[in-house]
């Protein structure tokens, strides 16, 4: 049991604080939703009604999509772009998808390589891009969920305000959808930019996300 906790500490730690934060968001969102209901002259809703409404789903999905977009873009952009001095970057001059030897694929696969690394054609292509593709699929899935749930939640509020509901296309072209989308994107892009740039000059002893404390500022692609 102790070994299981130690071997998986990173995932279990983040899974725990994720579930606690999601629960906290649901509780706070429930009270905020009912405050709006009362202010709009409607009756407060039950906990079950809130959990099965589209309000919570929209708020959750809009944050998820931006996080998965952040990782998908970071994974793909760092294939082709480098940042001198950053531990998040490959060394300057190694831009691109690299050779089969560097990537240990095909004839260069080792005895412990995944079976797909020894394959060729579409199977190798899929496995070679599976991390970025999966992040991208979850991004588009979350963005779709945000759009569908956001449309339903927006129209529920419109009816509460005695306003006409919008069609799905009108909602997608409207300010609510893009305000929710872009307010999340801008913060993710700033966070990536900050990580790539601050890690050139700053250190965190013991973290693989940082260069070793004694590494030079010009060292690129060196992790601690």
């Amino acid at each position: 049991m102790r070994r299981l906790l130690r071997d998986n500490g990173l995932v279990l730690f983040f899974a725990t604080i994720f579930l606690l934060a999601l629960l906290g968001q649901a509780v706070a969102g429930f009270h905020a939703f009912n405050d709006d209901q009362v202010a709009g002259g409607a009756a407060p809703v039950s906990w079950t009604t809130y959990l099965t409404s589209s309000d919570l789903g929209t708020d959750v999905a809009e944050n998820w999509q931006s996080e998965y977009l952040q990782f998908a873009l970071y994974i793909l952009a760092t294939v082709h772009l480098v940042q001198r001095g950053s531990p998040e970057s490959k060394p300057v001059g190694e831009e691109g998808i690299e050779s089969e030897q560097d990537q240990r694929i095909g004839a260069h696969a080792g005895h412990d390589s995944p079976a797909a690394a020894r394959a060729s054609g579409p199977r190798l292509w899929w496995y070679s891009n599976s991390l970025g593709l999966t992040m991208g699929v979850i991004f588009f899935g979350s963005w779709t969920a945000q759009a569908v749930a956001g449309h339903a939640a927006y129209n529920a509020q419109q009816l509460l305000d005695f306003q006409d509901p919008l069609g799905f296309g009108e909602y997608l072209a409207g300010p609510d959808f893009w305000d929710r989308t872009l307010q999340n994107w801008q913060s993710e892009f700033l966070a990536i930019l900050s990580m790539a740039l601050l890690s050139i000059y700053l250190r965190q002893r013991g973290s693989p996300e940082s260069k070793p404390v004694g590494a030079s500022h010009s060292a690129t692609g060196v992790e601690g």
């Binding site: 299981l4 071997d7 998986n8 995932v11 099965t52 409404s53 589209s54 789903g57 929209t58 959750v60 999905a61 998820w64 999966t134 979850i138 899935g141 979350s142 779709t144 969920a145 569908v148 749930a149 956001g150 449309h151 339903a152 939640a153 129209n155 529920a156 799905f168």
Partner: peptide, 30 residues
């Protein structure tokens, strides 16, 4: 690596089920 594979599958399942739940509720409330 069986525990890691179980956690991997659990994460993808959780995200998939949660997003499906949100989409279905959104479609029902249109």
């Amino acid at each position: 690596m069986r525990t890691q594979l179980a956690l991997f599958v659990a994460l993808l399942t959780f995200v998939g089920v949660a997003l499906t739940y949100v989409v279905v509720l959104g479609l029902l409330h249109r």
